[in-house]
């Protein structure tokens, strides 16, 4: 019986994973290229040519990476423990906070939403001093004014209470 951990080792190393992601992406785009880039007539060098060449390059390199990963995996010890899963989930959560910020941005405006986002970043680094939070909030106010009066860029304001 083949050891489950051995199979995981062969697949879950950085080379194989890069290869799997690269080949999946390039294959999907290659198959759907006619729909993604619609060209009227086929010429020697059309709008599809360069993307097609690049996708084939990515696909070939990805397949070699998968092979490299499988061959070299004998020398690499890969263990997927709780710490790795926790780290991965942490990154997803962190990106989620940024996504939430973008949803809130047009509703509560740049100043408040950015203060909330930066607070989340400070909490991530376990900052407890309130002074640090105040410094960051002051910098956000400066950034807002800098963009408004120096670049004439009006950063999004709140639609709830129109202004901030």
């Amino acid at each position: 019986m083949i050891n489950r951990q051995a199979i995981l080792n062969r697949i879950l190393n950085k080379e194989s994973l890069s290869g799997i992601i690269g080949s999946t992406l390039s294959l999907y785009l290659l198959i759907n290229l006619d729909k993604i880039i619609e060209i009227g007539s086929i010429t020697t060098f059309s709008s599809q040519s360069l993307p097609k060449v690049l996708l084939w390059i990515i696909l070939s390199c990805s397949l070699i990476l998968i092979l490299q990963g499988i061959i070299n995996s004998k020398h690499i010890e890969t263990t997927i423990d709780r710490a790795v899963v926790k780290k991965g989930l942490g990154y997803i959560l962190y990106c989620g906070v940024f996504y939430l910020y973008l949803i809130l941005l047009p509703i509560i405006g740049f100043m408040i939403s950015t203060c909330m986002l930066t607070s989340a970043i400070l909490i991530n680094y376990k900052q407890k001093k309130w002074l640090n939070y105040m410094i960051i909030f002051s910098i956000i106010i400066i950034i807002n004014f800098l963009f408004k009066f120096f670049l004439y860029v009006y950063l999004p304001s709140s639609t709830l209470w129109g202004g901030m």
Partner: peptide, 29 residues
């Protein structure tokens, strides 16, 4: 810890300033 929030705020304001659209913030993310 003090630099990361400033970098994030500058990135987001900078992306918005390119064309005054939140869509570019999504792209940057």
């Amino acid at each position: 810890a003090m630099l990361a929030p400033v970098i994030a705020a500058l990135c987001l304001a900078g992306s918005f300033a390119v064309n005054n659209t939140i869509f570019y913030l999504y792209l940057a993310l």
